[in-house]
Design a protein around this nucleic acid. Structure first.
Lengths: 199, 199
DNA sequence: TAACATATGTTAGACATGCTAACATTGACA
DNA sequence: TGTCAATGTTAGCATGTCTAACATATGTTA
């Protein structure tokens, strides 16, 4: 990896990605500066431009890598016992994974979903988003006994996504947590998913 | 208001707030620069600091004013016919107001809820957030026949908030709208609220 | 192994931005 | 009318993004 004292870094790209992720978590996705990342990685402020087009590209790299990690977290609970395809437990565990990621890495979560620009026109980002949503869509399709993801599947899935998405923002929002809402997360998740899947 | 050609602006503070709101909507809450706002308002880049402590304070002013406008939008539908206190229709209309505001002013919505910093420690912001949430809490209390907002009211309300909150983000997220999810918003809102309020 | 090409780093600098200090202008009021 | 507080301006510092020109390492080929 890092070759101390040598002119070349060894693996600056991934060193920078680590630094950016750390900074985004530390200071928030706004407030990120390339110069900070350079200080952490121990290189000059011009070095990143050999690996990234610009500041936005650095953030985008962390966002894409983050959305993949979120998907992994969501899929992580699917293998447990009692989590048959399309079961309540399976769908609840996907939701818990989604929210857990947001709570574990609120900075990265907000980098992915909180800001406005830069993402909509990036095909990688759109594709990753779709693939993550598909984890839920697939389970809901199973539940409905459908071989394909059709309009019924989508109609049932979208409110579930909206719910866990909003929950993730609320639980990681300083001015909301300041209200001391004290929710029992697993309970509320299970209850809400059950209601939304009903009828 | 503006006294053209004169040394003093007349009402620079509100002129700047307008400029900031416009820019936040145009470029997103990140990407906002004080210098841009000054160009729009037609003053030097030092002028704002007579009215705001710093850049964050300018954004905060727009955020606070925005959250009030969102609350007004939520309350706007409550007076309609068939919207008795605690009725499904009343609660649906609150939700529609919440989401409508986000769709009408996505930049401001993300300024309020999308970024990380600056809000949690501001008592104004926390108070405004609570007051907005109370619009929902009050209706739900009516529905449950409770005189006070107790744990039951909160348990039922929070998932509703999470749902409309997440919905607002998804509907204003470029990489999500790129997926062409085509949802019938009023239908889905009514259906989901009905499910979440059920037994 | 020597010579070259490519990848990857550095320094210097152009330009934008946030913010402060010192100064200028205006309006309000004694 | 003279003074003061409010509110604007210009000048300038510190920092940040990004580019251009140069330096060094790495790998390939004769």
């Amino acid at each position: 990896m890092k070759k101390s004292g040598s002119y070349h870094h060894g693996d600056l790209r991934s060193g920078l990605v680590d630094a950016v992720r750390h900074l985004v978590e530390e200071n928030g996705p706004d407030r990120f500066s390339v110069a900070d990342a350079c200080r952490i990685a121990g290189v000059s402020t011009a070095a990143p431009y050999r690996h990234f087009a610009d500041r936005d590209a650095m953030l985008m790299a962390v966002a894409v890598e983050g959305i993949r990690r979120q998907r992994a977290t969501m899929e992580g609970g699917l293998s447990g016992p009692g989590h048959g395809p399309g079961s309540d437990a399976a769908i609840v565990s996907i939701g818990m994974g989604y929210v857990s990621f947001a709570c574990a890495e609120p900075g990265v979560f907000r980098l992915i979903f909180g800001l406005t620009r830069t993402h909509g026109d990036d095909p990688d980002m759109v594709a990753e988003g779709m693939q993550t949503y598909s984890v839920l869509l697939t389970q809901v399709a199973h539940r409905l006994g459908k071989a394909e993801i059709d309009a019924d599947v989508r109609r049932l899935s979208f409110p579930l996504w909206a719910f866990v998405h909003g929950l993730s923002f609320l639980l990681t929002d300083e001015k909301v947590t300041a209200l001391k809402l004290d929710v029992d997360l697993p309970d509320m998740m299970a209850e809400t998913v059950r209601k939304l899947l009903a009828g």
